[in-house]
């Protein structure tokens, strides 16, 4: 499956980006995962003149080229990062590549319970009318206390975590196929 994977952090050293890179490597036999780095995306501004900044046009194309999307989001103040929210706003304004796309949210946080609240919030954001993504509601994959499960260079060191990730990906692939089928049928009508 072709997957566009958005790393929802603009930190230079980001566990969420490394998690996606780990997945791109780990699942390379089944999926082609394109990790999208959002560090160059400017702050969303409704008064922007023109369609969208070039980086957003690029992200738009990469999402459109994919069968499904994964968003890895950190949690800042019990919420998603402003950096990711800015990307989402651009993608709900003049370009709408997420409409109807199967999306799975995952997350990593350095704290206890981390990323659970921001996931719930991100799902709510993704189903808003301006975005209208098909959000996978199955398994919740988030890594709290990520530094105990992943080393500083981004290798997931915990076997249980890897197994659960594989399980989540299986469920998501199934879901993505079903949504794809549904979208095709709707387009035929």
């Amino acid at each position: 499956m072709k997957i566009a994977a958005i790393a929802g952090s603009n930190a230079n050293h980001s566990y969420n980006r490394m998690l996606l890179e780990f997945m791109a490597h780990h699942f390379k036999d089944q999926d082609q995962i394109d990790v999208i780095d959002i560090r160059q995306v400017p702050m969303f501004n409704e008064s922007f003149k023109g369609d969208a900044p070039e980086v957003i046009k690029d992200i738009d194309q990469r999402i459109k080229a994919a069968d499904a999307v994964i968003i890895a989001s950190p949690e800042y103040n019990h919420s998603i990062t402003s950096a990711l929210k800015s990307v989402v706003e651009w993608l709900s304004y003049k370009v709408h590549p997420l409409t109807g796309k199967p999306v799975m949210t995952i997350g990593a946080s350095t704290k206890d319970q981390g990323a659970s609240r921001s996931q719930v919030q991100l799902r709510d954001i993704l189903i808003s009318p301006g975005i209208n993504a098909s959000v996978y509601q199955g398994d919740e994959f988030f890594m709290s206390n990520v530094t105990s499960l992943m080393d500083y260079d981004g290798h997931v060191t915990d076997e249980g975590t890897i197994h659960f990730l594989e399980k989540c990906m299986n469920g998501f692939r199934f879901y993505a196929k079903a949504i794809d089928q549904m979208n095709k049928e709707m387009n035929n009508k």
């Binding site: 702050m43 969303f44 501004n45 800042y76 103040n77 919420s79 998603i80 990062t81 402003s82 950096a83 929210k85 800015s86 989402v88 706003e89 709900s92 919030q121 709510d124 954001i125 189903i127 808003s128 301006g130 975005i131």
Partner: peptide, 18 residues
């Protein structure tokens, strides 16, 4: 309200303040 959430630019300000 932007996409059921607060605008990114406001969230960014709060991140700075915390």
């Amino acid at each position: 309200e932007y996409d059921h959430g607060i605008p990114a630019v406001l969230k960014s300000a709060i991140e700075w303040m915390s």
